[in-house]
């Protein structure tokens, strides 16, 4: 079985996000970029499937700017076998919408015929939480989102999902789209020898046109603003003072 893993280049999760003062977006120039943390978990799971013998090949795919090459090299250094980069934007500030990403991925999947797609449940930049579900719809495949456990059982996958109030286990027909949640695994760090080896692994470059996809956005971004700030509060000196303030000032007790 071949496993396909879409990965996205996003602002590093440790970097403080700065909203541009003209409202045009978030400043991404000269900011540290990394692989979306949920996608790292997906890559890790795919590699573990290969190590356990359930998968033969792991293919990483990224859709975005040319610099997403680095993200794909990270996936290759972790253990993916080869990579496909679909260059869909020139400006690092241009985000390709999940619908267009899903359409391009459908094209890649039609060509690659994987038995399983493992994707992050959401990207930490646009927070849409949509690409996996949309891809599943376009392919007419089964979907299992927010996975905290994945077991391949022949023609099916048994997936435990993180849902409101607890966990749900479902059995989906393969081929399937599985989107992964935080607790599925802890991604490995790439070792230096593997980082060197990754430089020699194949990385194909494509364009959206190769798959006949128009990436023009459906949502026009009118403005991007800082969220409303909370007023600075007060420090209290004791539990008694805290209870007093909550009773009289805040009126919540």
């Amino acid at each position: 079985m071949k496993v396909l893993v879409p990965v996205k280049r996003v602002i590093d999760y440790n970097v403080k996000v700065r909203v541009k003062s003209d409202g045009s977006g978030v400043d991404l120039a000269n900011v540290k970029m990394s692989m979306n943390p949920f996608d790292e978990i997906a890559v890790e799971e795919a590699i573990r499937l290969k190590e356990s013998g359930a998968a033969e090949e792991v293919v990483a795919v990224s859709i975005g700017v040319k610099q997403a090459q680095e993200t794909l090299r990270t996936a290759l250094a972790m253990g993916a076998d080869r990579a496909i980069l679909v260059v869909a934007a020139e400006d690092v500030h241009q985000d390709i919408e999940p619908l267009a990403v899903a359409k391009i991925l459908k094209g890649v999947i039609d060509a690659e015929q994987p038995g399983l797609v493992l994707a992050g449940k959401q990207a930490i930049d646009n927070d849409m939480n949509a690409t996996g579900q949309m891809l599943s719809a376009l392919l007419g495949w089964s979907q299992a989102t927010f996975a905290s456990k994945v077991e391949i059982e022949g023609e099916h996958a048994k997936v435990t999902r993180e849902v409101d109030g607890g966990l749900q286990t479902i059995k989906v027909k393969m081929p399937a789209i599985v989107t992964v949640d935080l607790r599925l695994n802890e991604p490995r760090y790439a070792s230096l020898p593997n980082i060197m080896k990754a430089k020699k692994k194949p990385l194909d470059e494509k364009t959206p046109g190769d798959y006949g996809v128009d990436v023009a956005p459906r949502l026009e971004i009118l403005k991007t603003e800082e969220p409303a700030e909370r007023k600075a509060g007060v420090m209290v000196g004791s539990v008694d003072e805290l209870i007093e303030k909550l009773k009289t000032e805040a009126g919540v007790l």
Binding site: I11, K16, V17, V19, V26, I124, D125, N126, D127, R218, L219, E220, I221, L222, K223, T224, E225, E226, P227
Partner: peptide
């Protein structure tokens, strides 16, 4: 036209749907 938080709530984006 809708407002939605992005970047873990560090920014709020206003988007207009053409669909």
């Amino acid at each position: 036209t809708f407002e939605r938080p992005i970047y873990a709530g560090n920014a709020v984006q206003t988007v207009k749907s053409k669909d």
